[in-house]
Design a protein around this nucleic acid. Structure first.
Lengths: 127, 127
DNA sequence: ATAGGTGCAAAGTCTTTGCGCTTAA
DNA sequence: TTAAGCGCAAAGACTTTGCACCTAT
């Protein structure tokens, strides 16, 4: 067999994530749950967050490692889901978006970044 | 005194970044430069990339650590420059952008993420 | 019964940093 | 001369993983 089973820990972790809008790190989830679940381990939190993210139940929010770019003016990027390559995109920056974000949130918005994803021209032919 | 001085390593690192559009990691920059500069150290690459990014000469491209979100439908985020908090924004997803990105790049675009930044409502009053 | 999940701790990966030497100014 | 910067290696931070035990099915 090769099925997924119910696990109390996974449920706890998922529920914790649903109850909040803080976009927590694995560490944060762990510290929230630990007091009520003293034998929960950080490894389990990581394992389940990855499992949930891989199956699409939750969402990851970062590149795995830091990348750098000498073009400092804001411009969109494309990140290939398959090979991980990052490309620049020649598309106009829309300052109107920042104004909309301010209206929607009240935060003092100084800019934004757009990152597209999918399959890049090199990976497309390879499925 | 407390000034910044010229350094050959910093120049090499910055030039390497300008010559490419690969959005390299620190490791990649290190491996490109190492053959011609056998005593370059990875620590120096990190130090200079951080220095250049802090002064705005280059640009970082990731959150420092991975964050997770139980809302899986695409929606924009706001990340506060000061406290690091991440907020959801209630703004419509624009599929038209994906079509524009395809036209501009030729990549097979399956979606995009928008991340705003600035000062959040809590940090704004604190300067 | 048994395969998936857990806790724990060790290992791995990425990044930062302390220290003594080097070098730009 | 001298303080910024470097190379090196050790430490730190974050994440993954091997293994023996536990538990949903």
């Amino acid at each position: 067999m090769n099925g997924k089973r119910y696990s109390r820990q996974r449920e706890l972790i998922y529920e914790a994530l649903r109850q909040t809008d803080e976009h927590p790190t694995a560490e944060m989830v762990y510290h929230w749950l630990k007091p009520e679940n003293p034998n929960l381990s950080l490894g389990t939190v990581y394992r389940n967050l990855n499992l949930l993210a891989d199956e699409g139940t939750i969402r990851r929010m970062a590149f795995p490692v830091e990348r750098y770019d000498a073009r400092t003016e804001p411009h969109p990027h494309f990140c290939c889901d398959r090979c991980g390559c990052v490309y620049d995109l020649e598309m106009p920056y829309d300052p109107e978006l920042d104004r909309q974000a301010l209206l929607a949130s009240g935060h003092d918005v100084t800019g934004h970044a757009v990152t597209f994803h999918g399959l890049c021209v090199k990976c497309k032919p390879l499925h």
